[in-house]
């Protein structure tokens, strides 16, 4: 397991996880299985009995899930299963209709301050990149820090260059998004999200719109990010990534959380019929 090796680095690098006492919360049907390295980590994301409706269609049905700090969670499921909706609820691109969502001790509710706070805590990477086509790569990245965090321009640009180095394309800084390949665009999108120095990163099918030869360059960046200790929730169909990087896999179907467990558990011995069927189709 590569995790154990890097865990020491992570703890040295980031602020040490504060042990937060487990508060009383609704018992889930099964014990959540955490990777041993996260045994003492605090809860970063808590969702309890979350429902989401689109008109008459129930997109999320009583979803409860706790995610630890520095945990890498991969969400699987057929299309329309609610996995995207779930992570979009986490940064309030969608608003849940019932239940609780608490992110880094911030409750997502009617409070407008919570909304602003959560947006700078949580970074998001979209399937379609959603770079701003009228801004250069550099400006795409500096926009958030400058306008939201009020970072001076030079500092923001230095940060942006540093992040571009990290995702491996510093030479593209002055180009426009349309001049980049899909993989490069997605890496810029990751850099843009990181520029806000978020505690959590959400990935909504980050490789689905990419040509096969570009998928690896994006996955490599994501893996590097995972190893650096970021809390990540990834919706993806990349089973290789799920097996290698994830601490936990979560399977959604028809808006409900069907099964969760370690990659080992999933790939060797899934419990639910629906999970088996899905995995047999995708593998």
């Amino acid at each position: 397991m590569p995790d154990e090796l890097s865990a020491a680095d992570i703890i040295a690098e980031s602020a040490g996880p504060k042990a937060v006492a487990e508060t009383d919360r609704a018992p889930s049907e099964e014990p959540e299985q955490f990777s041993p390295r996260l045994a003492n980590a605090r809860d970063m994301i808590i969702t309890e009995h979350v429902d989401k409706w689109f008109g008459d269609f129930q997109a999320l049905d009583d979803v409860s899930l706790r995610i630890k700090e520095e945990e890498i969670v991969v969400i699987l499921g057929p299309s329309g299963s609610g996995k995207s909706t779930y992570i979009r609820c986490l940064n309030r691109l969608e608003e849940h209709d019932a239940g609780r969502i608490v992110i880094d001790d911030i409750e997502l509710n009617e409070d407008v301050r919570a909304l602003q706070a959560i947006r700078s805590e949580v970074g998001m990477v979209f399937q379609q990149f959603n770079l701003f086509p009228h801004l250069s790569v550099l400006s795409n990245i500096t926009l958030g820090p400058q306008k939201v965090r009020h970072m001076p321009k030079l500092e923001a640009e230095a940060l942006a260059m540093q992040l571009l180095e990290r995702v491996g394309i510093p030479e593209q800084a002055d180009k426009f998004p349309a001049q980049l390949s899909g993989g490069q665009q997605q890496r810029v999108a990751i850099a843009r999200a990181l520029a806000m120095q978020p505690k959590i990163m959400l990935f909504d099918e980050p490789t689905s719109a990419l040509d096969p030869e570009m998928i690896k360059e994006v996955l490599d960046v994501m893996q590097e990010l995972a190893e650096s200790g970021m809390t990540m929730i990834v919706v993806t169909h990349e089973m290789g990534f799920a097996r290698e990087v994830a601490d936990r896999l979560v399977f959604f179907d028809e808006g409900a959380l069907v099964e969760q467990g370690t990659p080992e558990h999933f790939f060797t011995n899934p419990r639910e019929e629906r999970t088996k069927l899905f995995l047999s189709q995708i593998l």
């Binding site: 998001m124 979209f126 990149f129 959603n130 770079l131 701003f132 306008k147 939201v148």
Partner: peptide, 14 residues
């Protein structure tokens, strides 16, 4: 595209 609105939100812009 809708994504432009969402990306702006995700970056934290008001």
């Amino acid at each position: 595209p809708r994504g432009q609105y969402e990306a702006g939100q995700a970056v934290g812009l008001s």
